[in-house]
């Protein structure tokens, strides 16, 4: 495969079968390997699309500074794209994200503004909105409300899956900005409406939910619940257990959030077996495990790993 530049190589990722984790010959699991993108995560798709669309409609011009609230991956993807297209990049990131993510961002020349750990990404969004007001000339692409984020998955992720696996029955992905699920959800509703859209949402430790009033929660502007059919909350214990199963059984070394996605996919698979349904369940491997080694998720017992993840933004 040949591309004119790194940016041209975003997307077109492999879809691989999981012969050992699939429960039966009739209920099969398929992994969409998004860690094969240039910076190693699914966020390359959204970042590139948001940046190109902003250039097209004139919101982004040469020499601009891009500002984005991110727990890591979107920042890394935007940083790569920004570097190649000549923009300065500033990220607002919760202080309880992994050290690897900070180092990688700095490596790509990103300036990092830390937001308080308590409150997680909600706080990063709040701080970024404040910073944007202080710097009206900076361009916030704002992944939580930018339709280009979802479009990247409508035109890319979901379309590729349907092409590679016309018999697909379920699509399972992580819920963060909701971009992947909204784009893929809309694509399948229009092109193969019988495909069930399943969301896996990471459940963090108490610190992340903070002491804030329940009315100060955050639902991304992109979110439209009619585009998904089921939504599961997955804690660190199940995420770690599954991410290790993926490595042990299928040789795939994925990030912790993928463990949460696989947990929901396996739950769906078990249900299909019980109901005697045929199923081809495609799920997203959002990134590789490299950036999370220092969290301790891959070493020792599950109990130890679970304890270490307490208070961390592991997805």
């Amino acid at each position: 495969m040949r591309f004119d530049s790194l940016l041209d190589s975003v997307g077109g990722t492999p879809l691989v079968g999981l012969p050992r984790l699939s429960p039966t010959a009739d209920v099969r699991l398929w992994a969409k390997l998004e860690d094969h993108n240039p910076t190693g995560s699914i966020k390359d798709r959204a970042a590139l699309r948001m940046l190109l669309d902003a250039e097209k409609d004139g919101r982004l011009r040469p020499g601009n500074t891009i500002l984005e609230p991110t727990s890591g991956n979107t920042g890394i993807s935007l940083a790569m794209a920004a570097k190649l297209r000549g923009y300065r990049m500033v990220c607002v990131m919760p202080e309880n994200t992994s050290e690897e993510r900070r180092q990688i961002l700095r490596m790509w020349g990103v300036e990092i503004i830390s937001s308080p750990a308590a409150g997680g990404s909600n706080e990063a969004v709040r701080v970024a909105k404040q910073v944007a007001e202080e710097h009206p000339d900076w361009v916030m692409l704002y992944q939580y409300g930018n339709p280009s984020n979802a479009l990247a998955h409508y035109d890319g992720t979901a379309r590729e899956i349907l092409e590679d696996l016309p018999s697909v029955t379920h699509f399972v992905a992580g819920l963060g900005t909701t971009g992947t699920l909204m784009g893929a959800g809309r694509f399948f509703r229009e092109h193969k409406p019988e495909v069930r859209i399943v969301a896996a949402e990471p459940r963090y430790g108490e610190l992340v939910y903070g002491l804030r009033n329940l009315d100060e929660g955050f639902v991304p502007e992109l979110y439209d619940e009619t585009l998904i059919d089921a939504r599961f909350s997955v804690g660190p214990r199940d995420a770690v257990r599954r991410v290790r199963e993926l490595l042990d059984n299928e040789g795939i070394f994925a990030g912790i959030s993928t463990g949460a996605i696989l947990h929901a996919a396996l739950g769906q698979a078990a249900k299909c077996v019980r109901d005697g349904e045929h199923a081809d369940i495609a799920f997203v491997v959002a990134d590789g495990g490299w950036k999370y080694l220092s969290t301790g998720a891959y070493e020792g017992t599950i109990d130890e790993a679970e304890d270490r993840l307490e208070g961390q933004l592991w997805a």
Partner: peptide, 10 residues
């Protein structure tokens, strides 16, 4: 039954 405030990701 678990009750949680809505939080962001990404």
């Amino acid at each position: 039954v678990v009750v949680l405030p809505a939080v962001a990701g990404g």
